[in-house]
C-alpha cells in the first residue's frame, strides 16, 4: 500500500547525512600498490560518505521502481493525499500496519545488505593493503 515510503524516508535521511559527512571528511587515505612490471600505483581508500551514498542509491532506486508498482496497482493516485488507502480510516489503518511491518523490514533488509557490502569492501581494501605491504618488504 505504501510500504516503500519507509525505506524512501531512510534513503533521504542517509543522503543528507552523507552530504554532511562529505563536507567534514578529511582527504581520503592514499596507498601505493605494486603493479605488474615493478611499478607502483597510488590508490585512494573509498571514503565513508561515498559508502553511505551506496545505501541511499540502493534504497532510492528500489523505491522508484516500487512506487511504479504501486501506481500500477492503483495504490498511488494523482490527487491529494496521493495514497488511495487514505480515503477511509479502515484502509488507512491497514496501510499503517503494512508500513510498520513490510516497510520497516524492507528498510532493515536493505541496510543489512549495505552492512554486508561494507564488510566485504573493507576486507578487500585491507587485503590489498596487506599484500602491498608484503610486496614492499620483499
Amino acid at each position: 500500500m505504501a510500504c516503500f515510503t519507509v525505506p524512501a524516508v531512510e534513503a533521504v535521511v542517509v543522503a543528507v547525512a552523507a552530504k554532511i559527512i562529505e563536507k567534514k571528511e578529511k582527504d581520503p587515505v592514499t596507498v601505493n600498490l605494486p603493479t605488474q612490471g615493478g611499478h607502483t600505483e597510488t590508490v585512494q581508500k573509498t571514503p565513508f560518505s561515498r559508502k553511505l551514498k551506496w545505501l541511499s542509491w540502493l534504497q532510492l532506486g528500489g523505491c522508484v521502481l516500487l512506487a511504479f508498482e504501486h501506481i500500477w496497482h492503483g495504490e498511488i493516485v494523482p490527487w491529494f493525499p496521493f495514497l488511495a488507502a487514505m480515503s477511509n480510516p479502515a484502509d488507512a489503518a491497514e496501510m499503517f500496519h503494512e508500513m510498520a511491518t513490510v516497510g520497516v523490514t524492507m528498510a532493515i533488509l536493505t541496510t543489512v545488505v549495505w552492512v554486508g557490502m561494507l564488510i566485504v569492501s573493507s576486507l578487500i581494501e585491507k587485503r590489498a593493503i596487506r599484500n602491498a605491504a608484503a610486496a614492499a618488504q620483499e
Binding site: 525505506p7 542509491w57 540502493l58 528500489g62 536493505t110
Partner: peptide, 20 residues
C-alpha cells in the same frame, strides 16, 4: 551503476514483499 542500484534495491524490497 544506476541500473544495478535500482534493480538490486527493488529486488531486495520485493523479496520482503514475497516473504510476507
Amino acid at each position: 551503476g544506476i541500473l544495478c542500484w535500482m534493480f538490486w534495491g527493488a529486488s531486495a524490497m520485493w523479496l520482503v514483499d514475497a516473504l510476507f
